[in-house]
Amino acid sequence: MHELSIVMGIVDIASEEAKRHHAHKIDSIELEIGTMAGVELDALDFAWDVGVKDTLLEHSQRKIETVEAMARCTNCDTVFKVTEPYAPCPMCDNLLLEYLSGKELRVKSLTIS
């Protein structure tokens, strides 16, 4: 349950940015979370309400863009969608993969007023 730490990180980023723009309200926040980022969306949901309480994000609309994990096999160069984390290359069974996406954990944008 490190998801509350993640929420606190999001609150920090959003609050700093809102303060920098002298905003008094964050209408919405857009997050980008990869399927291999190590974040459980259910746990994030649970942590969200606790983490954003009494902050500018308390009443904000939250959008989550999920980023699919993609990998390139270092043996046969096949690029494929990772359906099971750390599974081998579907073409040659090689385990040494270069992950092209899926580890994103970012605040993409904010709408402030």
Partner: peptide, 10 residues
């Protein structure tokens, strides 16, 4: 309302 693009790593 103003949208800010951040792309900031959490």
């Amino acid at each position: 309302s103003k949208e800010i693009q951040l792309e900031r790593d959490i």
